[in-house]
């Protein structure tokens, strides 16, 4: 029995190594010099820690990393709360407001779940492009705000609220909107947080849509900027790895601090960006 326990830990460590190894490479490479990194021999750790990569990453005027980080931050910080809130609003209305339109509106929303988002990037580009959304922030953000699946989750969630909710609201003289903002929403903090955090991760890491819609360097997200640097005219490897480290840090923090919500969100949705 004891041997089995030890064996489990050995297995755990053996599996953990390949999962951690890429993080080690990321960090090691970001601290090396271009010369060391371009060398022909393996090194475990740079002789002298060089922060040149980090300096170069921000000094590169062709691919403005600061701008890209700002764009990514705007996209994620706007998209996560707004898309979650929009879904909560619709989910609440569909669950608790009895009007004849509820059924058809629900159907109209749910049918869109059948259509996979990434596969239809060409039609979406065509429409957003016709509306003048190429090389704009709204073109980057707005098409990603409408998440039918989250509506479904919120609707199921609000359906399970007790019927006394509306009664309580009426006592306080609240209408539907009041019940939603004062009672339903504050009691949805867990679900809002779980979906919000997942949405943040999804938007921060998303690549195909920002690649397609932001052609002007001023509208690149950090993912597009890094991808561009992978194929640019002059590759500065330490800077590239340094920018990767910088782009990963916020999400790693979110993961470590909000893992409870992420795990809950994943269990509910099984999705990640």
């Amino acid at each position: 029995m004891k041997n089995a326990r030890v064996g489990t830990y050995v297995a755990g460590i053996v599996f953990a190594i390949p999962f951690l190894f890429p993080f080690y490479l990321l960090l090691r490479n970001s601290l090396m010099t271009q010369q060391e990194l371009g060398g022909l021999d393996w090194v475990w750790w740079p002789n002298t820690i060089s922060l040149q990569g980090f300096k170069d990453a921000f000094a590169n005027t062709s691919v403005p990393l600061g701008r890209a980080l700002l764009n990514s931050t705007i996209v994620a910080v706007v998209s996560a709360p707004v898309s979650t809130l929009l879904a909560a609003m619709a989910g609440y209305a569909l669950a608790r407001i009895k009007v004849a339109a509820a059924k058809p509106v629900f159907a109209l929303i749910i049918i869109t779940m059948m259509v996979p988002g990434a596969a239809t990037f060409v039609p979406t580009f065509v429409v957003v492009g016709s509306m003048g959304g190429v090389n704009t922030l709204w073109g980057l953000i707005v098409p990603g705000l409408f998440n039918a699946f989250a509506v479904l989750l919120f609707r199921g969630f609000y359906l399970r609220f007790p019927a006394e909710m509306e009664d309580a609201g009426r006592v306080d003289g609240l209408g539907h909107l009041g019940v939603f903002t004062r009672l339903a929403l504050p009691n949805s903090a867990g679900l809002l947080a779980a979906l919000g955090v997942l949405s943040f991760i999804e938007h921060w890491n998303s690549f195909l849509w920002p690649l397609v819609i932001g052609q002007d360097p001023a509208y690149w997200t950090v993912q597009v900027a890094m991808s561009t640097n992978l194929t640019s005219q002059s590759i500065n490897l330490p800077a590239l790895f340094a920018s990767a480290v910088i782009s990963v840090i916020p999400l790693a923090l979110v993961f470590l601090l909000a893992q409870r919500y992420i795990v809950r969100g994943v269990m509910m949705t099984g999705i990640k960006g």
């Binding site: 309580a168 609240l174 004062r182 929403l185 504050p186 903090a189 809002l192």
Partner: peptide, 28 residues
């Protein structure tokens, strides 16, 4: 997921206390 009923603590008496957080949502 936690049962919504459990989270629905003492709702009837605390309506006014929630408005602050409701405001938070819309201010986002």
């Amino acid at each position: 997921m936690e049962a919504p009923e459990r989270k629905f603590r003492a709702m009837t008496s605390a309506t006014s206390g929630f408005s602050r957080r409701g405001f938070l949502g819309s201010s986002l």
